[in-house]
Nucleic acid binder design. Structure first.
Length: 426
DNA sequence: TTAGGGTTAG
């Protein structure tokens, strides 16, 4: 660890690591209880309280306090503060506590510092399944699913048995890669442990993997076999149908959920705990289904119901879905009015949706408006200019096209391509 | 009082 944090003197050599006597920590200190409670409500407060403690009474800091601060840094993605806490872990001699090491890995993963995740992992002497899973999870979180699956294999070769969490994060890697063969292989490993079928997070990850890898039939099979579903199970399946153009199935499922809630609310006489109330993510799936099926009136109705019946404040994603829905049907003017009436500032994606649709439906006026809005946002890409230029060409507006092309060469350097050559050992 | 997990448009 001296190599890792070279400015910090290592208090103990690895040959003479301190024996942490957990018995002395059995009684929780009041300060640790406060650090822990702030972690939920206001993680920044955990950090402030801890730094106060360091100044006033460093002897009150123990491994639990450090753990809560590391978690606070993870939640708020605070890399510098996280690294400072790591230094303290070393200074105070708490390195042998594996809970701290895995939390540190999680913190470095959250702050996109994958190199340090790996350094912490490498220096853990006896790596258990949690250490390996944290490493796999770090790679998944940092968009490196191929590497995550490689590590999953290394773990197996090392003789460490994967558990439910390892399988859940590994399935997430397969979903990100769209690697059905690897997902099926992991499903097969899971099937050998019947008790794992009771783990809802794992089952949801399985549904999601089949959805993202394009095997909607298999996704439905897993979905139907989940006895007690939660809102994520339903959302994954609704999004799955929407992504595969099965809008009617997606909306049927949404209605089934609403019906189930109605009958449950009669049974439970008003207790909301038993209900699976649709959330903002689920409505993205519902709106996406309407958009893919060209169901504009239904889409508008669901958008209203989301706000009025469910009290969900639409986010940029929901407005984006509505713009997409209107644009796909060629309702460009309505889409433009909708964008102008949005209570939040439209982003580049929304203007680019309008630009693309204006090209498809040959509306050069709206295309020019969308393109100028993209420039205002400083988010204009070469492709946007090309799109507008192609619309001018299709309309025979050669002067406009030449002017735009001239502008493009003035503003841009010629494009170049980058190709990433990755490798996956199988 | 201590570790790692699943749903999100274009």
């Amino acid at each position: 660890m001296t190599r890792f944090l070279h400015k910090v003197a290592k208090p103990f050599t690895s040959a003479a690591q301190p024996q942490i006597n957990l018995a002395t920590h059995l009684k929780p200190t009041r300060i640790n209880l406060s650090l822990k409670s702030y972690l939920k409500s206001n993680p920044i407060k955990t950090i402030f309280l801890f730094s106060d403690l360091l100044r006033k009474k460093i002897s009150a800091v123990d491994s639990y306090s450090l753990l809560y601060v590391i978690k606070a840094c993870t939640k708020k993605s605070l890399g510098t503060e996280g690294k400072q806490t790591h230094t303290l872990v070393i200074k105070l001699g708490y390195e042998p506590i594996i809970f701290l090491q895995t939390s540190l890995m999680d913190m470095y993963a959250a702050t996109t510092n994958i190199a340090d995740v790996h350094k912490v992992f490498d220096e853990i002497p006896n790596k258990n399944v949690v250490c390996w899973t944290s490493l796999i999870s770090a790679y998944v979180r940092n968009q490196k699913p191929y590497r995550a699956i490689e590590i999953f294999r290394h773990m197996q070769m090392d003789g460490v048995e994967p558990d439910q969490v390892t399988f859940t994060v590994s399935l997430s890697a397969c979903a990100d890669m769209g690697a059905l063969d690897k997902g099926v292989w992991i499903h097969d490993l899971i099937s050998r442990k019947p008790e794992f079928s009771e783990d809802l997070s794992l089952m949801n990850a399985l549904v999601n993997m089949y959805v993202k890898c394009g095997d909607i039939r298999k996704a439905m099979l897993v979905f139907d076999n989940i006895r007690v579903k939660d809102i994520r199970t339903w959302t994954s399946m609704i999004v799955g149908h929407a992504l595969h153009g099965q809008a009617e199935e997606a909306l049927r499922l949404f209605s089934a959920l609403e019906e189930e809630n109605k009958s449950r609310s009669i049974q439970c006489q008003g207790t909301k705990d038993q209900l699976l109330v649709p959330n903002d993510v689920m409505f993205i799936g519902v709106l996406m289904a309407c958009s893919h099926a060209g169901m504009v009136e239904e889409g508008k109705r669901y958008f209203r119901s989301m706000i009025e019946e469910y009290g969900i404040k639409p986010r940029l994603s929901h407005f984006g879905c509505m713009v997409d829905l209107l644009c796909r049907l060629g309702l460009l003017k309505e889409a433009y009015s909708f964008i102008l009436a949005m209570p939040i500032q439209p982003n580049a994606v929304i203007w680019r949706t309008l630009l693309g649709a204006s090209g498809v439906h040959g509306n050069e006026e709206l295309a020019a408006v969308a393109q100028s809005r993209l420039r205002e946002l400083n988010a204009s890409l070469v492709g946007d200019d090309v799109a507008l230029s192609n619309i001018y060409a299709a309309k025979g507006m050669w002067e406009e096209k030449i002017m735009l092309r001239h502008e493009m060469t003035q503003r841009r350097t010629p494009g170049c391509s980058l190709v990433e050559v990755g490798k996956l050992h199988s």
